[in-house]
């Protein structure tokens, strides 16, 4: 349980989250915020960076506390740590980015239940040192931000004919509004996952979806027994 993974170099850990184990497109985690906040580029980037900050801070603190937290009550402890950082980020966004705060709405407090964050705390930060956990959090967070930005770009350019609020010449006349509404979220997400499957020649398997693919599904189950 407490074995350190010293074989991996820092750069590997950082890049793994961005490409090879991209949390949204490969691990299929955090689907709710990625579909809900990718209606425009600016909200997508804002959501991604807010989640990255929570992920980075919670990974570091949980890694520091990993020898102090008793194994049986670890999940409630992680949730408290994550909720604390979410509150900090929520207050910062409310103070300095009021527009973003209004457009993210309920999804800002819901970073608490984003399974990427609890998943990384359980899978990585509770077993590794502070430096590696920070890199892992940063990598996973940037992977999440990157995917959200790609989805946001597709949905905003094709759906509203603009990019980050600026109208584009051709697209603003011939846009497909449904792509920036809720059906577009499911559709663009499905197409991106199909694209990943095509590019990796089916090496990435999505046999189990949602909860089934979630790396901390055992955690959910254990929460009932232990806490």
């Amino acid at each position: 349980m407490k074995k350190e993974c010293q074989k991996q170099s820092g750069l590997d850990i950082l890049l793994r989250g961005i490409i090879k184990e991209n949390p949204v497109l490969v691990l299929v985690l955090g689907t709710c915020p990625s579909m809900a906040t990718s209606t425009s580029v600016s909200t997508a980037v804002g959501m991604g960076l807010a989640a990255t900050m929570v992920l980075l801070c919670s990974n570091m603190l949980i890694s520091l506390l990993r020898k102090v937290i008793p194994d049986t009550v670890r999940i409630p402890c992680y949730i408290v740590v994550i909720a604390g950082f979410v509150t900090v980020v929520q207050m910062l966004v409310q103070a300095y980015f009021k527009d973003l705060y209004d457009s993210l709405g309920v999804f800002l407090p819901l970073i608490v239940v984003n399974c990427i964050i609890l998943g990384r705390a359980e899978m990585f930060a509770s077993k590794n040192g502070v430096f590696h956990s920070a890199l892992d959090g940063l990598g996973m967070g940037l992977g999440f931000t990157l995917t959200l930005t790609v989805m946001g770009t597709i949905r905003e350019v094709l759906g509203s004919g603009s990019f980050a609020g600026h109208d584009l010449p051709f697209f603003s006349e011939y846009n497909i509004p449904i792509l920036s509404q809720s059906p577009g979220g499911f559709f663009v997400f499905g197409c991106l996952i199909a694209l990943v499957a095509k590019l990796t020649h089916g090496r990435v398997k999505h046999e189990d979806t949602g909860c089934g693919a979630c790396p901390h599904r055992t955690v959910c189950g254990k929460l009932g027994k232990e806490a």
Binding site: I178, S182, P183, F186, F189, G190, I193, A197, H206, T209
Partner: peptide, 20 residues
């Protein structure tokens, strides 16, 4: 490449459009 999760999401998109 659409087998499994992608086709599920695309059909969810159609259901969402119906609910609109």
């Amino acid at each position: 490449s659409f087998k499994g999760l992608p086709i599920t999401l695309v059909s969810a998109a159609i259901l969402a459009a119906a609910f609109q």
